[in-house]
Design a protein around this nucleic acid. Structure first.
Lengths: 208, 208
DNA sequence: CTCCTTGTGCACTGGCTAGTGCATTTTATC
DNA sequence: GATAAAATGCACTAGCCAGTGCACAAGGAG
């Protein structure tokens, strides 16, 4: 009774297609029939697994949030006090920038923004599963850098908040909410600006 | 033929109601009948003025963008090199924070995020009418401060971008995308954090 | 007084879609 | 091969809503 007869395969296929279709058409626009067709599955199968359209949507969003969390945490992991702070921060910032600009991330944010008014739980799902954890992890790492004497930080949470802000807000504007693909050069520029300002504010060495 | 027989009054009433209803229900959810009922107007009148639902929506968004622009510019105006930079930046930052957290601003952003995928012009409307102009104005003012020797800025545009980032990104997170009302204390805190970091990075005096 | 613009009220079409019911088929497990 | 869970195909209901058509009312302009 451990295997459930291809149930998981179908379930995953449905979740994948659901996100694809929802991301492309928007939650309201997307029809369950389209999701079913895309997943190569009967509509009934979807209702068997998820009950109704809204639950399907929540499940798809949750799955994407988990995915985004994993990628963001991997980026933060690289933040270790074993090299020049500028170098490490640039590397991590650049990775975070890539995560932020990923097409799936943008789709997730769009769906979240569009629907959290009618489904408030959505925001909690994403926050609990991804945003908060990434911020915490970043704050932890920055605290270590501070302890190693590489940064002058009083509140690691605020520092993490601001490092994120310096990265994401410019990316949001410059990529036109994800509709314009940013080249490597522009990603480097934004990352560079963010790290430079961050270090001018929090670096332990005086910057000219 | 100058007066258009109460046309303008109706038009304005429709635009106001349209934004209210769209903001509350979302573009797709909102029905034109509801807008008409809220405005105290026949459905036909709406179609006479705006042609179809989408045009009505665009017009409502544009009107709100104009509104937001005016309020944001007023805030930036206060940025003059006649007092302590910390003091002036705090005042302006605080005003910008209030603009950003205004209920109408949040509604506008939500609608924009929700619909720009299917109506790409929306983003241009808002950018041309509001975002760009505010950023430019802010950059201009920061440049003046730099010229007055109160800031060490190389690129005013980047400085404006980052000042905005340090304000808006934390506000976005902390207010849960506008669903949680921030108290004065928290607005002060975010503004204070932003100004402190900004001045540590760009202030002309050394900060301890 | 008359005309013409503007607005009203109501009924209606046409299109779309969530969710269901049912008979049938696949498929994993024993 | 028997069995039961899982999946399929198709038809169908019921609801929602943008946009239209038509007859009619109001009210300022000439």
């Amino acid at each position: 009774m451990t295997t459930t007869r291809g149930r998981i395969d179908k379930r995953q296929a449905i979740l994948d297609s659901a996100f694809t279709v929802f991301a492309r058409d928007g939650y309201r626009q997307a029809s369950v029939d389209t999701v079913a067709a895309t997943a190569g599955v009967a509509k009934h199968t979807i209702y068997n697994h998820f009950g109704d359209k809204e639950s399907l949507f929540r499940a798809a969003v949750a799955a994407l949030a988990d995915d985004a969390l994993a990628r963001n945490l991997a980026a933060v992991e690289a933040l270790r006090p074993d090299r020049e702070p500028a170098e490490v921060l640039t590397e991590v910032g650049r990775k975070l920038a890539e995560c932020y600009c990923d097409e799936k991330s943008w789709a997730l944010r769009r769906l979240l923004y569009a629907e959290f008014a009618s489904m408030p739980e959505l925001q909690d799902i994403v926050r609990d599963r991804a945003t908060d954890k990434v911020n915490d992890a970043l704050a932890d790492r920055l605290a270590r850098l501070a302890l190693a004497g590489q940064l002058r930080i009083t509140d690691p949470a605020v520092a993490a908040e601001q490092f994120g802000a310096l990265l994401t807000a410019p990316l949001e504007t410059r990529s036109r909410l994800g509709t314009r693909k940013l080249g490597a050069a522009e990603l480097d520029e934004v990352t560079g600006n963010a790290v430079r300002t961050f270090l001018r504010a929090f670096g332990s060495e005086q910057v000219v």
